[in-house]
């Protein structure tokens, strides 16, 4: 089971990294310092390990890192910085949508994938987009509201 040199493009930067075939994308990313990608259930139930791959949200715990080669990977830190937060970051902070915070990176990436596809989502679409992300603290109400607020914020900045 020989490691192979794999090229991973994460938040716009490309890394060459030697990985064994049994390394999941989740652990490849965390080992590279992207600890904003969280390890939760490790079996595709909780969504904490969510990553955008070419704009699509997937559970990185169920993807072999080798399969992510030459694709655009985005983690929650890739959406903005503390100085220039993404509207989703800002809405989650403003509304106190995070308690322990562990599920939030996955939540925000699921919401990002939704808003990229449906800039003005219905409540039903927001619920569906978050259905693969488990939160054991909040009861989801503020998370849901934060996505709605971010959608309004993004909508108001769209060109006419």
């Amino acid at each position: 089971m020989n490691p192979k040199l794999i090229s991973l493009t994460i938040n716009g930067s490309t890394h060459q990294v030697a990985l064994s075939p049994n390394t999941t994308l989740l652990h490849a990313l965390r080992d590279l310092g992207h600890t904003d990608v969280k390890s939760g259930c490790e079996k595709g139930d909780c969504g904490a390990c969510g990553v955008l791959i070419d704009g699509v949200v997937v559970n990185s715990c169920l993807l072999l890192a080798w399969l992510a080669e030459n694709k655009e990977l985005v983690t929650v830190a890739g959406l903005g910085t503390p100085d220039k937060p993404h509207p989703l970051h800002k809405a989650f902070v403003d509304l106190g949508a995070a308690q322990c915070g562990y599920c939030i990176p996955g939540m925000i990436l699921s919401a990002k994938a939704l808003l990229d596809q449906h800039p003005q989502p219905t409540d039903e679409q927001i619920r569906e987009s978050l259905s693969g992300n488990l939160c054991r603290c909040t009861g989801y109400v503020r998370i849901f509201e934060a996505v709605r607020v971010a959608a309004q914020e993004l909508g108001s900045t769209l060109p006419e």
Binding site: G47, V56, V58, N59, L62, S110, S129, G132
Partner: peptide
């Protein structure tokens, strides 16, 4: 079919 993430995978 499960969650959005799983539907994509």
């Amino acid at each position: 079919f499960s969650s959005v993430q799983i539907m994509h995978m």
